[in-house]
């Protein structure tokens, strides 16, 4: 039951270069699933929406609502594709790990891509870097720099630290939730498979926790998207 991860260290003989092949696999799988679902949902678009189109439009309106909550729509609409992709990608990624965990040759291959710190921190760092980029692009470098000294100048170091803290918390919150969920699922699987008594004791908590994980997956996808848009609005909106 001791599952390792398919990690290859020292790729091309470079000491800091390493890769977790399961992550690569799951990133690709999640991306493909999201892409296929979205494209399937966007086929046969009609004026009078039916079936899948309703779902697509509901998701779009939902994300639109998130953006509208944090900034005004005129500046916010360019972030709609980003927020949509973040939400769908993280949601699908979260749910993949809840549905199944795959172990192959004692190494865990099939899991949530979002249950890995590398992946979530990449996403959060990307979001934070984008907030800086759009902050400068939409409001100009002067306003961007000035923002660090508002409302009072001596808060500037804290504001600087906040940027890194935001990156870490945004990424690690998602990672922590998903990873903890998967660990508990793995433990419960172990317990359920250990024997008759273990099955009796473990089956019901396992089911409950799986249901709860689905809930957490949805909530975390929502929170990640929401916070990404909140950080974005801090940088691109005129007043806080």
């Amino acid at each position: 039951m001791d599952h390792g991860a398919p990690i290859i260290e020292n790729v091309f003989g470079i000491s800091w270069l390493s890769v977790n092949l399961s992550n690569v696999l799951m990133i690709a799988v999640t991306s493909i699933i999201v892409f296929v679902l979205c494209v399937l949902g966007a086929r046969h678009l009609q004026m009078k929406p039916t079936g899948v189109q309703n779902v697509m439009e509901w998701i779009l309106d939902f994300i639109k609502g998130i953006i509208n909550d944090t900034m005004d729509w005129k500046t916010g609409k360019i972030f709609l594709p980003l927020a949509l992709t973040l939400f769908t990608y993280i949601l699908v990624g979260n749910l993949l790990g809840v549905i199944t965990n795959g172990v192959f040759h004692g190494e865990i291959w099939w899991k949530s891509p979002t249950a890995d710190a590398s992946v979530t921190l990449t996403l959060s760092a990307m979001v934070i870097i984008l907030t800086h980029f759009y902050g400068i692009k939409l409001r100009g470098g002067k306003e961007y720099v000035k923002d660090y000294f508002r409302p009072v100048p001596f808060l500037a170091p804290i504001k600087l630290i906040e940027e890194f803290a935001n990156t870490l918390t945004l990424g690690l919150r998602l990672f922590g939730n998903l990873f903890a969920g998967e660990v508990l699922l793995a433990l419960l699987v172990g317990l359920t498979a250990s024997g008759v008594l273990g099955f009796i004791g473990g089956a019901i908590p396992f089911l409950a926790w799986q249901g709860f994980s689905v809930f957490i997956g949805g909530i975390q996808a929502f929170i990640f998207t929401m916070l990404a848009m909140v950080y974005m609005s801090h940088k691109v909106s005129e007043e806080h």
């Binding site: 991860a5 270069l17 890769v19 990133i27 710190a117 590398s118 921190l121």
Partner: peptide, 14 residues
């Protein structure tokens, strides 16, 4: 084991 460290290639791929 799963916590591991940050894998640069994973990040790039992501």
């Amino acid at each position: 084991a799963a916590l591991g460290g940050l894998h640069v290639i994973d990040m790039a791929v992501q």
